[in-house]
Amino acid sequence: MSSDFKIYNATELWQIETSLPSIPTFSQNLDKILGNDGIQLGSLTELLGLSGSGKTQLCLQLCASVQIPKILGGLNSEALYVDTNANFTVERFKEILFSSLAKCQEIMGSSILIKEEDALKKFHYVKAFGLENFCAFLYQLPNFLSDKPHIKLIIIDSIAFPFKEGISLKQRTGLLFRLMADLQKIALNKQIAVVLTNEMTTRIGLSTGAIVGSLGDTWSHRCNMRLLLTAPEPLKNLRLAVILKSNVTAERVAKFQITSDGIRDIQ
């Protein structure tokens, strides 16, 4: 019976947590505040922000970053992109992917060539519109992942969108927590990073400011890392990222920008 529960000690867990590199964001400032030099594998990361703050852009960048070759300390793995709000465009992704790979190529020299066609094959895209579609996909996710063992990053853009209609508030919380428990179980077992985006909503009268992440206060406990993205000056290409919650690092602010190549530091 006791074999039902794998009881680790902290040393074993430390070995698991540090055995694989994190997924870098291509902005050193951002990597630094995230703690382990990027997005930690095996945990849930939530990106919050108003529209236009760069959530989707950061997601696309991560899908490219996950392909960094092993020689450069990368994962050389694949990404799964679950698109629920139709924000994804393949042209923009190609732009970011190819310039990220070009940068890798530049560092490695011409010894190893990365084919653009192969790179695109390492990206898996799922269009999940509507709640039924979304839940059905997550239900068969374990099978999907055993078919494609190289996936190390799952993006859900956005988590709030499927829950906008067709479900009562109470059922939404229950369903959301069940889905996340199953998702995180796989993520921890297979050491996959899960990145969710979430929208902002207004709750008038809160002492901490009226604009908060959607899905309510209970949801805000669920993710291991919450990162708030803002564009403080809309005309300038300046983005700020604040850690709202983290189990590894302190709350700090990082500056970055979105260029045609993807997420970069401000020079």
Partner: peptide, 17 residues
């Protein structure tokens, strides 16, 4: 001590740090 983790918030890296 037994730490029952239900949402992956236990971080051995943090403990080590």
């Amino acid at each position: 001590v037994l730490y029952v983790d239900t949402k992956g918030d236990f971080s051995a890296v943090r403990i080590q740090k």
